[in-house]
Amino acid sequence: MAALARASRYVFRWNKRVDPTFALSTRSMASKTPVGFVGLGNMGSPMATNLLKNGYPVIATDVFPETCKEIEDLGAHVVDSPADVADKSDRIITMLPSSPDVIEVFTGPSGILKKVKKGTLLIDSSTIDPAVSKEMSVAAEKMGAVFMDAPVSGGVGAASLAKLTFMVGGPEEEFNAAQELLSCMGANVVYCGQVGTGQAVKLCNNMLLAIGMIGTAETMNLGIRLGLDPKLLAKILNMSSGRCWSSDTYNPVPGVMEGVPSANNYQGGFVTTLMAKDLGLAQNTATNTKTAIPLGSLAHQIYRVMGSRGYANKDFSSVFQF
């Protein structure tokens, strides 16, 4: 649970309940006002750093105080709780590991909604159940704030380079205000629809990612056992119809690529526990919508078993070793 909690992150937003055109222009005028950030883990820390690099004052907190030191040294103002973040900012970004963490950060005793200002823009970049995003939106609306879900794709490397893809769900008239901040942390910011649709896209993406990684690992293992050089095999796959992100950008075989977790004993990256969590969310939504996902279900089982056999905190590409 501690490992999961370290992944959490938070977001702020400034939004007056007035005519949308006026609200957008006002936010633009105040674009360099403080931005709150909750969750300074593997993803949140580089995301918050990129806000600082773009000139935004950052008010930050994390459940683990030791994770705050690096961002504090870069100029962020660290506070004790999400409620304190809400008290000092009106645009807040959250980056958390799970649905329960998001619920606690927003609605708990020291949560954002305890001190949130009317008109605050709340952007949650966690990957959670779309139903929880909708619940948080309703709770925020009761306090006069606006909630948007904006999960990310790209991993720690893309977070560090500000090349994430954000999938945004929420009121369309608020998208420009969210995009102003998200563009500092990502190369692609895509509006998906109302609250929860960003999460829906993210779950679909991660289910495909897991299936693709398992397929890549199986394929590479078969080729190696047939006597093929793994680098040569990867090269040919990547100029052929079998090419995919897991083969050409994040290859799971040690020695094939530099700068990926497989080159570092599967340390860093996107841990198996979080992939299993996301696949569980995909499984739940598939059940609720009566959608058959046989490969997604099998991928979920594989990553759950990996988590119980010593791979929980290794990158999900360690499925090659498993």
Rank of each mutant, 00 (worst) to 15 (best):
L233P: 03
G215K: 01
A162R: 00
A292V: 08
M185A: 06
V189Q: 02
T291K: 05
E180S: 12
N188E: 15
L182H: 09
N206D: 07
L161Q: 15
G212L: 03
A286I: 01
G215D: 04
E173S: 09
M275A: 03
I211Y: 06
I211V: 08
Y191C: 13
G198C: 11
G280I: 02
P252N: 06
S160C: 12
L228V: 13
T272Q: 00
K231Y: 10
Q179A: 15
M275I: 11
M239H: 15
E173L: 04
A276Y: 03
K163V: 05
A177Y: 02
P261D: 06
C192R: 14
S246M: 04
E180A: 14
G157Q: 13
L208K: 01
M220S: 04
L279E: 00
N176K: 15
S153L: 02
M239Q: 15
L232K: 15
G170Q: 07
G227D: 07
S153A: 08
K231S: 13
E174Q: 12
L182K: 12
F166I: 11
T219L: 01
L228S: 12
V168H: 09
M275N: 00
V256P: 02
D248A: 10
C192A: 15
Q179T: 12
L274Y: 03
L279G: 02
V256M: 05
V156M: 01
G154A: 10
S246A: 03
A210H: 05
T197N: 14
G196A: 12
S153K: 06
S246Y: 06
G280K: 02
N188P: 05
G255P: 12
N221C: 04
A276S: 15
S262I: 00
G170I: 10
A200P: 08
E218V: 07
A217W: 00
L181C: 11
V201D: 07
C192S: 13
A263R: 12
N205C: 08
R243A: 04
K290R: 14
M213P: 05
T285H: 15
I236N: 03
C204D: 03
G259D: 14
G255T: 13
P230S: 14
T273C: 11
G280P: 01
N284I: 05
V190G: 06
A177K: 11
A159R: 03
M239N: 14
S153C: 00
D248I: 03
G242E: 07
G269T: 04
T291N: 01
T249Q: 10
E174T: 15
S183I: 11
V195N: 14
P254A: 13
S241I: 04
G198M: 12
L228G: 06
L237S: 02
G259A: 07
S240E: 02
T165F: 03
Y250E: 01
I211A: 01
Y191R: 10
